[in-house]
Design a protein around this nucleic acid. Structure first.
Lengths: 266, 266
DNA sequence: GTCATCGTGTTGTCCTGACAAAAACGCGGC
DNA sequence: GCCGCGTTTTTGTCAGGACAACACGATGAC
């Protein structure tokens, strides 16, 4: 390994580590139903995450790598490309493929707040405040693409972390898509229930803003009246293009902020 | 074309249009330096955007399409895949590839506020409030990965739309990366200047929150004291992994909110 | 009429091969 | 010592083929 500390005149020091191509052995199972490129991608990602492939280390050229693994070059490229898309690798023509220096985390998924908190070790809890079927208001009908007045589920929940309120969630779901059991809503999250019901989420439009809390909102969240709140509205669509959920949520700005990583698409 | 209106008992009506494979002719230039798959992807995207390929219309099978265009199947697949990654197309094995129903816009880019406003026809303006070189504070040094006290650019700008203040932007850039001309900062945006300087942005970590305005902030933005503000902190990295920018921004929540679309990665 | 089964169409995966383009390196000339 | 040029290395693009997996409709059995 060569380590070349680059000292710049302006005091901006950045250690450029250029590791020799790693000689990793990957275990590929051709009898597995899991695609070969996916097996390779997962093992590469695992190696990167566990530091076996440190930041800046070269991956070794594709042709040699393919030969060593007994794969064809397109298969190896497909595996590498999937990690490039995730932001874990960078390819440079004439140089090679290397692991990015900066630590990359998730690039903003359509994650439920439940998953977010759970990942952060916040032991989330849910209190279902309401779970009814109501006629759609004009706002809800427009967002979900249903007729005004048609039946929609309305779920109101309070999300807590460590017993403290964090957010008030208000969701609308078209009637008939999903059976919304109050007990399950408390134990899991709405998005998990959708996945379990065979709904494949595709995309969502979100809008994040801020405003001051009304007396009622402040009361429900344990904030002083007029406190700053983070607001989020979201409409989620499945892969057939129909809207499957519309939600307007408010978060305690003193206790929660949206953290995410985003990638620049080349 | 077959049009099958699906009427559900719950009043949820969604017209499923399944168009016969479109017979589009694309103009591919083999002498162009622009890759063939990219030419095809752009023309497909254009056709979708202009409604030539309506939502739900099938693309026709890949093999026939490849033959008709005089391309190989991998090339056609690469073009299609890039649009699937953008969320414009959906592939289904055994069925075909079709245009998604929901209108898809940009999936949250690392866009500057300047571009955002310009795209929205808001005719943005910039007033540079300060453009200095200062020693890095502990916070800035930590975010940029430089030594505390080392020289960094500090740019403070006020962004206006239609002459009204929208946001206060405070950016830090390591010294020596970029020449930060005040005149250019007013005419363009920071990110455009970075791209022009040969810096290829790779990823960024963002944090969005809310709080109430101090008297000074309210004064600068034309808001009443204590108004709700939207806050955003961002650290941007280039493809070598070094931090190239750190910014803390505040937005008038009464006039601006973050709008974006996000895709579920399969 | 209803259900299981088979056939067909389409995308998913994987292979081999070839040339082009870009970046880095080494060498020679100055 | 420095610059320029060619060489080498590596990824980028493209072709053509083969089989597998899955979805859907049609067909037949019951």
């Amino acid at each position: 390994m060569t380590r070349i500390p680059v000292i710049r005149t302006d005091g901006y020091a950045h250690p450029v580590t250029s590791t020799a191509p790693a000689q990793l052995d990957f275990a590929l199972d051709r009898s597995s139903p899991v695609p070969l490129y996916y097996q390779l991608a997962q093992q590469l990602e695992s190696a990167i995450e566990h530091g076996v492939l440190g930041p800046g280390s070269l991956l070794g050229n594709e042709i040699e790598l393919a030969g060593r693994l007994g794969l064809s070059r397109p298969t190896v490229r497909q595996a590498i490309q999937s990690l490039v898309d995730k932001g874990l690798l960078v390819r440079r023509r004439g140089v090679g493929t290397q692991v990015v220096h900066s630590q990359v985390k998730r690039p903003l998924e359509l994650s439920s707040l439940y998953d977010d908190l759970e990942a952060a070790g916040q032991s989330p809890t849910t209190r279902v405040l309401g779970n009814d079927v109501v006629p759609a208001s004009a706002e809800v009908a427009g967002a979900l693409g249903v007729a005004e007045g048609s039946a929609v589920h309305h779920v109101q929940r309070l999300r807590l972390a460590h017993g403290e309120p964090v957010a008030h969630l208000s969701n609308y779901v078209p009637e008939g898509l999903l059976s919304l059991d109050t007990a399950k809503l408390e134990a899991s999250g709405l998005y998990r229930m959708m996945r379990a019901a065979g709904i494949t989420l595709h995309s969502a439009r979100q809008s994040v803003g801020a405003r001051r809390a009304t007396a009622e909102e402040a009361e429900g969240l344990g904030e002083p009246e007029g406190a700053a709140l983070l607001t989020m509205q979201r409409t989620a669509y499945d892969d057939t293009g129909r809207a499957v959920e519309y939600g307007t949520h408010i978060y305690r700005a003193s206790r929660y902020s949206f953290e995410f990583q985003l990638l620049v698409r080349g």
